[in-house]
């Protein structure tokens, strides 16, 4: 059972006019076995929260804390965070020319586990995981995300989620730009992940659509760098019906 605990997190980004605060005090606890959805309008700081948890150098944490099972996440480097059990599925997965998917996955798995995976079972695992998200095994020979369609990039993120099997997964708008079939495939992958004992999921999304396939335990409305309201799954239905106006109006 692992717990991701975010307390009063403030983060800013450097701009020409000096640092601009984007996260303005985020407090959130995800207990093992729970799926939390963070919903909010564009520009509310949802992705900044995801990147701040993962340690992207673009964002400066100015105060607050993030702990995973009590360990200070903010004191860890990007790769240490991943090895501690955090995973970020990115909205815009990055192309890495000349590095094959197969090499990338094996290198990552070796880093996470601290030892190289057994060759025979590993190839089987990779092929099985890829076919579950309907990625042709030939993708393993292609360069990481290079020439992948938007949907293929997202499915590749899910392959990584399943193979690396972290404690807590942060999914940053994994649903954006997916057609309904791809959305189902991706959702099934997330559901397989969270069907395991004690896994935490932080699902960041703009739309309620994905919540039809991934049932959240908690829903948070994210506005202007902080959580404006929290509730159960029913809050998503309310957002579906009424949109974010109630919150954005209040924020002005």
């Amino acid at each position: 059972m692992s717990t991701l605990e975010i307390k009063d997190l403030h983060a800013s980004v450097k701009t020409e006019d000096g640092p601009t605060e984007i996260l303005k005090g985020v407090t959130l606890t995800i207990d093992g076995g729970e799926t939390h959805a963070i919903m909010g309008p564009n520009g509310s700081g949802k992705s900044t929260l995801a990147y701040s948890i993962a340690g992207h150098p673009k964002y400066q944490i100015t105060s607050g804390s993030v702990t995973l099972d009590g360990a200070d996440v903010l004191a860890m480097s990007v790769d240490e965070r991943a090895r501690a059990g955090l995973f970020l599925a990115m909205q815009y997965p990055v192309e890495v020319p000349g590095v094959s998917v197969s090499n990338f996955l094996r290198t990552a798995k070796t880093a996470i586990d601290g030892e190289a995976p057994k060759l025979r079972t590993w190839v089987k695992d990779v092929n099985a995981t890829m076919s579950r998200v309907q990625m042709d095994p030939t993708f393993a020979q292609r360069n990481v995300n290079e020439g992948f369609s938007g949907g293929e990039k997202k499915r590749h993120e899910i392959v990584q989620l399943e193979l690396l099997n972290p404690k807590v997964a942060v999914l940053d708008e994994t649903d954006s730009g997916l057609d309904i079939d791809a959305l189902k495939i991706v959702s099934e992958g997330v559901n397989r992940f969270r069907a395991q004992e004690g896994k935490g999921v932080l699902l960041i999304t703009h739309y309620t659509r994905i919540l039809r396939y991934i049932q959240p335990d908690r829903v948070h409305v994210f506005v202007d760098g902080r959580i404006a309201e929290s509730g159960g799954a029913e809050l998503a239905d309310e957002l579906e019906a009424n949109g974010y106006e109630k919150y954005t109006g209040a924020a002005v």
């Binding site: 992207h56 990007v78 790769d79 965070r81 995973f87 890495v96 290198t107 690396l164």
Partner: peptide, 13 residues
């Protein structure tokens, strides 16, 4: 971005 992506998968710098 490439380095961040790889490192976010546990791969050392």
């Amino acid at each position: 971005q490439q380095l961040f992506y790889l490192r976010s998968r546990g791969i050392s710098e």
